[in-house]
């Protein structure tokens, strides 16, 4: 299970929304955090989020040990199962 945590602040909501468009991905809550999980990979397209530099590169609050960020660049954020 791949799990990505994103803090619930206004500028992060687009990241969560785009991640949630993948039917394999489930978005839940843990307190102030969105808990985004998937049996496989989680992929977020940066352009679809509309995020610019500062928010995009600081939107990740945590990654569960079963997953690892394999891409976080101007195109996409990708978390793959370990």
């Amino acid at each position: 299970m791949t799990t990505l945590y994103v803090l619930d602040v206004p500028e992060n909501t687009a990241v969560v929304k785009i991640a949630d468009e993948d039917p394999e991905v489930t978005v839940g809550r843990r307190g102030w955090y969105f808990e985004i999980s998937s049996a496989g990979s989680i992929v977020v397209d940066r352009r679809a989020t509309g995020c610019r530099h500062a928010v995009w590169y600081s939107c990740v609050a945590g990654v569960g040990r079963d997953g690892r960020i394999t891409q976080h660049d101007k195109n996409a954020l990708r978390v793959d199962p370990v």
């Binding site: 945590y5 843990r30 307190g31 955090y33 990740v60 609050a61 945590g62 569960g64 960020i69």
Partner: peptide, 18 residues
């Protein structure tokens, strides 16, 4: 940074109520 995000995910699970 990867180790930090992994440790932070553990702390979120430990300390933040569902």
């Amino acid at each position: 940074f990867g180790k930090l995000l992994a440790r932070k995910a553990e702390l979120i699970v430990e300390r933040v109520p569902v």
